[in-house]
Design a protein around this nucleic acid. Structure first.
Lengths: 190, 190
DNA sequence: TTCGTCATGTAATGGGTTACATGATTAC
DNA sequence: GTAATCATGTAACCCATTACATGACGAA
């Protein structure tokens, strides 16, 4: 997860650990906090795997900063990690981090990931409904209220996902339609 | 967290590990999954601390089952863990687990916990708004959409909390009013 | 000159998971 | 008798955190 996030951010531009942490906090910070104690070791590990390499300072001579950039191997790793449509990719953080790098995926893969997430949330929804049906009388008001609220939140998540999926599908279809139009135009020209 | 949940569930009735895991999955399962690899060691640890003790099987002789019950010391531990209004008590899981045992808290403590959670969520909300304001033009559509959706979800959480707080406050006030009425009645009797 | 923030790192610890191993009981 | 589920446990690992340690640089 952290590796994916680091590679994804370094893909945009070379950065050093401290900067990386700031960017991480800014874009993913509302759900995903990283400490230096995990950031720096991960960065070193990625370097050892030659997924990233140090950019030796030019104008930046002053401060002791370890600026890293992604290597070709790092790009591969990133793509592999990002596309991996396992269980982890459907869970809260795994999904959010991947969404932040969606622009690097093909629309079809995006749809697959979105649908995986939807299935996951539908599972959570059913579990919640089941619990509500099964235990409604036996559980206390607070847990009941929590469950109802969770169910609402889950359903809202699903609606949001549905919108994302629809908009992806439009993006997949439109080029097709255009090419069909192009084919027609070509036929007419003939 | 797990200790709190185990003690809280065993407070209701004595159970063995397997049962405990089921109850855990049923009531808190939508956000909090535990594996045996962490459940059994925790149970043993609690036993070593004499927070729980084994109930020796009577009618249940057949199966090899380790049924545990909470001890007086366990009750103390539970109360202490539950009331602890630290950072962890405001975070997602910490809060939800505590909410599931809210009935064991005084209304004032409940309100304190609810307000801590609200403050926490308001912080998240501000962070999100800040990011949206700051980066709106620079970040990609997916992250933007995620952030907006997160903000909506956070605001919905806050509204829900507000309702819970209000209903707690009513419960704090009503007995006061009743006692005032009692005082008046007493005065009239005099 | 000193304070804040930039910047990097390590060691100890924590809290969990996965995979493995075992075996009893129940339902078919 | 055999498959599913009940039931307990351990060892290896993973991913992260906290606390600690260090020091450079810029601004007041």
């Amino acid at each position: 997860m952290l590796e994916l996030a680091i590679l994804g951010l370094l893909k945009e531009r070379a950065m050093h650990g401290y900067q990386l942490k700031k960017r991480l906090a800014d874009t993913l910070g509302s759900f995903w906090q990283v400490s230096y104690g995990s950031l720096y070791p991960t960065l070193k590990r990625l370097q050892a795997q030659s997924a990233v390499e140090m950019v030796f300072p030019r104008e930046d001579v002053g401060r002791r900063k370890n600026v890293y950039r992604v290597t070709a191997k790092g790009e591969e790793m990133f793509a592999e990690l990002l596309e991996r449509v396992g269980q982890e990719a459907a869970e809260d953080n795994g999904f959010s981090v991947r969404l932040a790098f969606f622009r690097y995926l093909k629309p079809e893969t995006r749809i697959r990931l979105l649908e995986r997430r939807r299935t996951f949330l539908e599972g959570r929804g059913s579990t919640l409904k089941e619990s509500l049906r099964e235990y409604r009388e036996r559980i206390d008001g607070y847990t009941l209220s929590l469950m109802k609220h969770e169910l609402d939140a889950t359903e809202s998540d699903i609606r949001w996902l549905e919108d994302l999926i629809k908009s992806e599908q439009r993006q997949v279809e439109r080029p097709l339609r255009r090419s069909r139009a192009a084919r027609i135009a070509q036929r007419e020209r003939a």
